[in-house]
Simulated assay, not measured.
Amino acid sequence: MNCSRKLNGTLVSLRSNFTRKTRSYCTGDGYDNVESSKVLIFDRHLKRKQRDRAAWLINRKDSLVNTVADNLLDRLEDVKKTFPTTLCLGGSLEAIRRSLRGRGGIEKLIMMDSSDEMVKLCKDAEKDFASDNIETSFLVGDEEFLPIKENSVDLVLSCLSLHWTNDLPGAMIQSRLALKPDGLFLGAIFGGETLKELRIACTIAHMEREGGVSPRISPLAQVRDAGNLLTRAGFTLPGVDVDEYQVRYNSALELIEHLRAMGETNALVNRVKFLKRDTALATAAVYESMFAAEDGTIPATFQVIYMTGWKEHESQQKAKRRGSATVSFKDIQKEFGGQTS
């Protein structure tokens, strides 16, 4: 990847270049169209093997992963309370560990991943963070069957892992149960606009070469569903916001290698296990012809949905009873309607 990023008016060289678009949503009752997964969508055994491989391919200077981890942890700086005991679930474990930098007042950190190799990687890297004075433990476990006692942690962090669970609402419910009252859940998952360019190129290439479409890229949650996921999982004060990052690559092959290093390759149960050479070449050609920039690089969009939710506690703000307002909108309009800004 050959890119750059502007920071405070100075051009800083980075491995990846991001064009960031941000939208914020305040979620209330949420949406009604999210259903718990009752079928197997993802092959969890294959996903563990992919994450084992990613542990050997991981790039600690991956700007996309590091930026997402840093943005997720930035939310801790907006909260006055501390989180002595924290559980970190899968995904970008090592990037989260490097980005902590004292945020959240964390004293005990449990790092969990379904991949034994990824856990070993984090153990080996822990010596680099000895000065943090954080008591760190490691656990091999599955986000779908969380091996954590109820009411035992103050904070649950999940950075780019839960979008591979077959029952996302169920995994979030387990995270809420693990939290103490007034505990915080912070999650980041890839959203439905992720890799939209690759989806288009794959679809066209499959239609042209094979006369039909086969699943090559996993389904992902939509932004409109994220608020309802939090509400259905029982979190209070839910909040959702979205970032879009555009990473530029020298070729489609470089994009695929990046996905492998992140452990983000296809793990659908109904996937086509072998991609024909002609179809692969056609996908790369379509991608380049439709999306290539003047300098020859190709863009890939990564949409990241950030979710925030609290476990219920009596000290939290609560909505007023319907009809309890003492001032009407008509009174407000009479008071301020004639004023101009």
Results as ranks from 00 to 15, higher is better:
Phe18Gln: 03
Trp164Lys: 12
Asp43Tyr: 13
Leu57Ile: 02
Ala300Leu: 15
Cys159Leu: 06
Val68Met: 01
Gln333Gly: 07
Gly141Cys: 08
Lys47Phe: 00
Ala285Lys: 15
Ala292Met: 07
Ser158Leu: 04
Phe138Glu: 01
Thr82Trp: 02
Leu198Cys: 04
Gln174Trp: 04
Phe274Thr: 11
Gln246Thr: 14
His45Pro: 07
Ile58Ala: 09
Leu89Met: 13
Lys108Gly: 09
Thr340Phe: 14
Asn228Cys: 13
Asp78Ser: 13
Thr86Gln: 01
Asp142Trp: 00
Leu229Ile: 12
Ser114Pro: 00
Val12Gln: 08
Thr82Leu: 03
Lys38Gly: 12
Asp52Gln: 11
Lys318Asp: 09
Gly9Glu: 06
Trp310Phe: 14
Cys202Tyr: 10
Thr85Met: 03
Gly296Trp: 13
Asp182Leu: 07
Val140Asp: 03
Val79Asp: 01
Glu107Met: 14
Gly192Lys: 01
His258Ile: 00
Leu268Gly: 13
Glu117Ile: 09
Ser99Gln: 15
His163Phe: 05
Ala69Gln: 06
Asp74Val: 05
Cys26Glu: 08
Lys276Ile: 05
Asn71Asp: 02
Asp142Leu: 09
Glu126Trp: 13
Arg176Thr: 15
Thr231Trp: 00
Gly141Arg: 03
Phe190Arg: 05
Thr165Lys: 11
Ser114Asp: 05
Leu100Cys: 05
Gln339Pro: 08
Ala205Lys: 11
Phe336Glu: 10
Leu157Arg: 12
Pro238Ser: 11
Pro181Thr: 11
Val12Ile: 15
Phe190Thr: 08
Glu314Tyr: 04
Ile204Gln: 10
Gln246Asp: 08
Phe190Pro: 00
Asp278Phe: 12
Thr27Pro: 03
Asp29His: 04
His206Lys: 04
Gly211Phe: 03
Ala69Gly: 01
Val68Gln: 00
Ala261Ile: 04
Ser137Thr: 05
Leu73Ile: 12
Ile200Leu: 06
Ala280Ser: 04
Leu155Cys: 04
Cys26Ser: 13
Glu94Asn: 10
Ala221Trp: 03
Ser115Trp: 01
Asn151Ser: 02
Val286Arg: 15
Leu89Asp: 02
Ala280His: 07
Leu11Ile: 13
Leu184Asn: 06
Ala69Thr: 05
Ser37Gly: 15
Gly192Glu: 08
Leu198Ser: 07
Asp225Pro: 04
Val119Trp: 09
Thr279His: 03
Tyr31Pro: 08
Thr231Gly: 06
Val304Met: 02
Pro299Val: 14
Pro147Ile: 02
Asp182Gly: 07
Asn59Lys: 03
Phe129Leu: 11
Thr19Trp: 00
Ser218Met: 15
Glu143Arg: 14
Cys3Arg: 12
Lys334Met: 12
Ala282Cys: 10
Glu314Leu: 02
Trp164Leu: 06
Thr231Ser: 10
Ile106Met: 02
Trp56Arg: 06
Phe185Arg: 00
Phe329Lys: 15
Glu314Asp: 11
Pro238Thr: 13
Arg176Met: 15
Glu144Lys: 14
Ala319Phe: 02
Arg103Val: 08
Ser99Trp: 10
Gly104Leu: 06
Glu94Thr: 06
Gly183Glu: 00
Gly187Gln: 01
Leu229Cys: 12
Ala201Lys: 06
Thr27Cys: 14
Thr308Pro: 02
Asn151Ala: 04
Glu107Tyr: 08
Glu208Pro: 03
Gly192Pro: 05
Arg15Val: 10
